[in-house]
Design a binder for these strands. Structure first.
Lengths: 297, 297
DNA sequence: CGGGATACATAAGGGAGTTTCATGCATCAT
DNA sequence: ATGATGCATGAAACTCCCTTATGTATCCCG
């Protein structure tokens, strides 16, 4: 539908002139000279084939044709301006976070509320993805990636490592008189004894890799559920330490040993360089970085 | 109301892309290259602060923001296009003729109907003016001017001179056995004996300037009324010869003598050079010139 | 599983359309 | 009259936009 449109720069000038009834004032609004406006109107009049303004001594008046054209154009521009403003506002007001499923459920879901409280003007949408995303083909503004960094064109901030360690509720720990040695863990129920991370950690702690063999093969499926179970005192869970800093600080969980296993990756906050200074990007960065700061380096 | 508008060239490209779902096809519609469209979309995305399209393998898709922006823009452009088309059409379809009162009543009013029959798509508006008009400050497309020609910036076509001569109906002429000498006129009633043109003509005809003195000072006010009276056989009228060619050819009037007076001016059809090729201008020119052609040179 | 075709991105370069500047002209107000 | 206001115009400069050429990724086909 190759609808024939007038030259848009000229029609824009026309609209302003019609509204102001003056080339000079229209030029003021448009940020150009009276001369340029005069030129554009002339172009438009040549294109339409008839004058759009009658030049009277110290003022101009719309011709019949101009009088019919002006309101339609003004209205159309108002709609465009409104939609544009809304788009700009929407762009500033909605933060799309792309994140790995694990990070979303294990950490982000529990904490994003505080970001929204801190920035009530920014709506948040969380997209979860299995693989590393490409900003060119996703709507995300920022993403949480796991890996080792070094993505071209992206700004990256290291958030946390993937160190994991057993955690449990202080009450459960106290129930066995405290945990001094890793071997003391074996006296307690284990939330997900068949978690593939356990052998790794057990070995690092000087225990047998199969020390948990034979226990019921229960699995709660995600860290956050395991964490909840641990907090409820149901057993020991092997959790990514960085994800539960706040719970440890709040006394809901304890990490009895410094011994950690690791997946050998790190989590990063990344976003396109082009958007590094967008307010919503800054807001998110400035909110999330302190939460992982320091002890995770 | 300096409403913030997006870059219009870019928004135009965006609209086409959104409609086609393809940079390449949009470029086709817009008559530019895919490359240019890509550039414009990039500009717009930078301006709005967020991507408007998601780049998927062999196709693109609107983002949330783009999806909300596109319909509003499309609709606005449709309105502009419609108004523009209407303006163009109106410009082509209405011919504004500015003319001197005398020409309008003495000739144009009686003949314009045939123009309208020949060009049913063109509406005609006749503006009458006392003075010579300036196209810059009137809405006229063409004008009939009296003068001696030589107006800058205007195309001019000589129509007729202002020669005038006595005219009467053939029956009235026959009633006195035909007119052989100018003096024979004095036997007949004169429609407007005190018309200022009479003394001029009488002298040229070798009669006394005041040969009509003492006749009742009736005046019908305009040539066309005088002509009607003459056609009705009520007397002799002094008429601009060129205005009544058709009536003479039709046998309604006779001009008994070749002796003519003149106002020393000519009538011209004029119009701005810029509009010389507008269809309606050509139509009017091609209609009116043959009507005065030849014997008026 | 190559090879071609399709679609968008990007860099460099040039050109047409706009804009500005300077000036002129007409009108209006004082 | 005289200055101020407002639009038109011509020349020159600039800016933006478009084109050309090329790259990259994906899809499709045999």
């Amino acid at each position: 539908m190759a609808t024939q449109l007038p030259p848009l720069a000229a029609i824009r000038a026309f609209e302003a002139v019609a509204r102001h009834g003056s080339f000079t004032r229209a030029a003021g609004e448009l940020g150009m000279t009276q001369s340029a406006v005069s030129y554009q109107i002339k172009v438009l009049e040549e294109r339409v084939g008839t004058p759009l303004f009658v030049r009277r001594p110290r003022r101009i008046a719309l011709t019949e044709i101009g009088r019919r054209l002006a309101p339609a154009v003004s209205e159309a521009f108002e709609h465009i301006a409104a939609a544009w403003q809304e788009a700009r506002h929407g762009a500033q007001g909605t933060l799309v976070i792309n994140t790995l499923q694990t990070f979303a459920t294990a950490w982000l879901a529990r904490h994003v509320g505080s970001f929204q409280l801190a920035h009530p003007g920014i709506a948040v949408r969380i997209e979860t993805e299995q693989k590393v995303i490409d900003f060119a083909r996703n709507e995300a503004d920022v993403a949480i990636r796991a890996g080792s960094g070094g993505w071209p064109g992206l700004v990256e901030h290291q958030l946390i490592g993937t160190d994991f360690s057993p955690m449990l509720s202080p009450r459960l720990a106290a129930s066995v008189g405290g945990l001094r040695e890793p071997v003391d863990l074996l006296k307690l129920p284990i939330v997900s004894p068949n978690d593939p991370w356990w052998p790794d950690w057990l070995v690092r702690a000087g225990l047998a890799a199969d020390a948990l063999a034979g226990r019921p093969r229960t699995s709660l499926g995600s860290q956050s559920v395991e964490a909840s179970a641990a907090i409820a005192g149901q057993g020991v869970a092997l959790l990514t330490t960085a994800f539960y800093r706040q719970e440890i600080e709040a006394g809901l969980l304890v990490q009895p040993f410094d011994i950690v296993g690791t997946e050998g990756q790190r989590y990063f906050l990344v976003y396109p360089e082009a958007r590094r200074n967008a307010p919503k990007t800054r807001a998110f960065r400035d909110w999330i970085l302190p939460l992982f700061d320091q002890k995770t380096a």
